[in-house]
Simulated scan of single mutants.
Amino acid sequence: MGHRLHHFLGALAISLGTAGHASAELVVIVSARNPAPALSSDQIAAIFLGQAGRFPDGAEAVALDQRLGSLERNQFYQQVAGKTPALLKAHWSKMVFTGRGQPPREAADSASVRRMVADNPSMIGYIERAALDGSVRPVLVLR
């Protein structure tokens, strides 16, 4: 029993260690039909945190998240807003409680985000760079 438990904990430590270092190259995207110029990470953070509901040109901006717990989502908020999942949850609890906003809708994965954003010029989302195609346009590349 002791040996098996030790082996399990070792494997767990290895998988946790690799999860911490794995990162995809993410791109923030809008529909190919959306004329928005490149955006700064601050502008994007404001849209995704419910602090801005418009693109710089005044058009409506609707944020679309990846699913809760996904590597892409955790990495996106860490890179654009410096927020861990716990800080993000606290942010939205406060926003919802004070009636100042609702968190973005969620899509299952990069392909779903790309499809929804491509079909709706007011949406903005983030996907793995490998999922980019001509239906969407990158407004920020996160490295």
Score class of each variant (00 low, 15 high):
Gly2Lys: 14
Gly2Pro: 11
His3Trp: 10
Arg4Thr: 10
His6Cys: 13
His7Glu: 09
Phe8Gly: 07
Phe8Asn: 13
Phe8Cys: 12
Leu9Ser: 12
Leu9Thr: 12
Leu12Thr: 11
Leu12Ala: 10
Ala13Val: 13
Ala13His: 05
Leu16Gln: 13
Gly17Ala: 10
Gly17Met: 12
Thr18Arg: 02
Thr18Met: 08
Ala19Arg: 12
Ala22Gly: 09
Ser23Cys: 13
Ser23Gln: 14
Ala24Asp: 15
Glu25Gly: 14
Val28Thr: 10
Ala32His: 02
Ala32Tyr: 01
Arg33Pro: 05
Asn34Glu: 02
Asn34Phe: 00
Pro35Thr: 03
Pro37Tyr: 01
Ala38His: 07
Ala38Phe: 12
Ala38Leu: 14
Leu39Met: 05
Ser40Glu: 07
Asp42Ser: 15
Gln43Cys: 12
Ile44Val: 00
Ile44Asn: 00
Ile44Trp: 02
Ala46Tyr: 10
Phe48Tyr: 01
Phe55Ser: 01
Pro56Gly: 09
Glu60Ala: 13
Val62Asn: 07
Val62Cys: 05
Leu64Arg: 00
Asp65Glu: 02
Asp65Ala: 06
Arg67Ile: 14
Arg67Thr: 12
Arg67Ala: 15
Leu68Arg: 04
Leu68Pro: 08
Ser70Thr: 09
Ser70Ile: 06
Leu71Pro: 09
Leu71Asp: 13
Glu72His: 15
Arg73Leu: 05
Arg73Cys: 01
Arg73Tyr: 07
Gln75Glu: 15
Phe76Asn: 04
Phe76Thr: 02
Phe76Met: 03
Val80Gly: 11
Val80Tyr: 09
Ala81Val: 06
Gly82His: 08
Leu87Ala: 15
Leu88Gln: 02
Leu88Met: 03
Ser93Pro: 03
Met95Asp: 06
Val96Ser: 11
Gly101His: 10
Gln102Tyr: 06
Pro103Trp: 04
Pro104Ile: 01
Arg105Glu: 02
Glu106Tyr: 06
Asp109Ile: 04
Ser110Leu: 08
Ser110Thr: 06
Ala111Leu: 07
Ala111Phe: 10
Val113Ile: 03
Arg115Pro: 07
Met116Thr: 08
Val117Met: 03
Asp119His: 04
Asp119Asn: 04
Pro121Trp: 03
Ser122Tyr: 05
Ser122Arg: 13
Ser122His: 12
Ile124Val: 05
Glu128Gly: 14
Arg129Ser: 14
Ala130Ser: 14
Ala131Val: 11
Asp133Phe: 03
Asp133Glu: 02
Asp133Gly: 04
Gly134Pro: 07
Gly134Cys: 05
Ser135Glu: 04
Ser135Gln: 10
Val136Ser: 05
Arg137Pro: 09
Arg137Ser: 03
Pro138Arg: 06
Arg143Trp: 11
Arg143Gly: 08
